[in-house]
Design a binder for these strands. Structure first.
Lengths: 193, 193
DNA sequence: ATTATCTATAGATCTATAGATAATGC
DNA sequence: ATTATCTATAGATCTATAGATAATGC
């Protein structure tokens, strides 16, 4: 809203921050490939060349965005609420919200080198989720839980075709949570015959 | 393997088919954006200009691929086995296999106009899945089921980082199926308070 | 003669850089 | 004087097309 343009007219750290914010929004919305450096600079209100001056390359900017996104949410949310928090995070897309979930999740759909960057953040979520179960293959189950959020997020991005896009978030949570509990708690034997 | 190059040296329908096959593989592997028309023509072993001669545009070729993929699987598999079949379909990626699941699923991660094409195929899967439950919001639940497969497919495409990529398919099925049954069968009341 | 295929290239991107210009702080 | 910002453009894509060439069937 108020972006201090009057207060400091030449401010490299403000330009840096504006680029990071704009990149976080756009990478979350469209993913890496379909976000151009000109889009980012445009939304940030700075010249496109500054992106390269301050971050070196588009990929390095992406890494900076991911690094910043990771610090925030994971530190605050207790593990047993993490899944519901992540799910609600992707279900209500409000303006000015935290984009860390989308950024991490969307990276799964990206190209190899870019995906690796986002995956580091994903690993932290996995570790947090896997402590929730004492079932065998805790790590696999945690990945499956995260995969579900990834899929829900992607199918929501239809633009209204899917009921997932229009459904009440709490209704979705009420559908998904019991199934996730089944996955994490109830099954003890999964060894193949 | 044997692609008849000796038998008929100039054959428009063979070139068409080769383009369709190559496009199906590449769209399934990389998605629409990261597959170039030159990649497709190269794998098909035909000149790149033929793609436009026979299909008009890259997007029209994509639509043709989706249309062909849809006809096959859905007609044969009974609904109650559809989920397990789809899941196994994405879990064992063998050469020369049916790519319909990936093509439909990957389209969820694509750009708007392209996604719409893939979504038509998805709608058919949704309808088939939604007859499996008599719980309220059957449509929402069917979307959630499909979303899970989408997410698992995407996270598997890591290149080996995720345990999903290396896990025994049957182990994954054994984890996921009970949770999906919970989603489709056990919960009857999901009305938000 | 007809139809499949190839060559060459237009036109529209997109990332990245080099060098000029303009606003600040000492 | 230093440092932030802008202009202009190189170089590498990618889709699509126009027109030339070559292989077929009557």
């Amino acid at each position: 809203m108020d972006d201090h343009q009057q207060v400091r007219r030449r401010d490299s750290s403000a330009s840096r921050a504006a680029l990071l914010d704009a990149a976080a929004e756009l990478f979350a919305e469209r993913g890496y490939d379909r976000t151009t450096v000109r889009d980012i600079a445009g939304r940030a209100g700075v010249n496109q060349a500054l992106l390269f001056r301050y971050f070196g390359s588009k990929e390095a900017l992406y890494a900076a965005v991911v690094a910043r996104a990771g610090r925030d949410k994971l530190a605050e949310v207790p593990p047993n609420e993490l899944f519901a928090q992540l799910l609600r995070g992707i279900l209500d897309r409000q303006a000015g919200q935290d984009h860390s979930s989308q950024i991490m999740l969307r990276s799964s759909a990206e190209d190899v080198s870019v995906k690796a960057i986002g995956q580091e953040l994903g690993q932290d979520y996995i570790r947090a989720l896997s402590v929730l179960t004492d079932a065998p293959e805790a790590d696999l189950r945690a990945h499956l839980v995260l995969a579900w959020i990834v899929g829900i997020d992607l199918m929501r991005a239809d633009g209204g075709l899917s009921p997932l896009a229009s459904a009440n978030p709490e209704q979705v949570v009420a559908c998904v949570l019991p199934a996730v509990r089944t996955l994490l708690e109830r099954i003890k034997d999964i060894s193949p015959e």
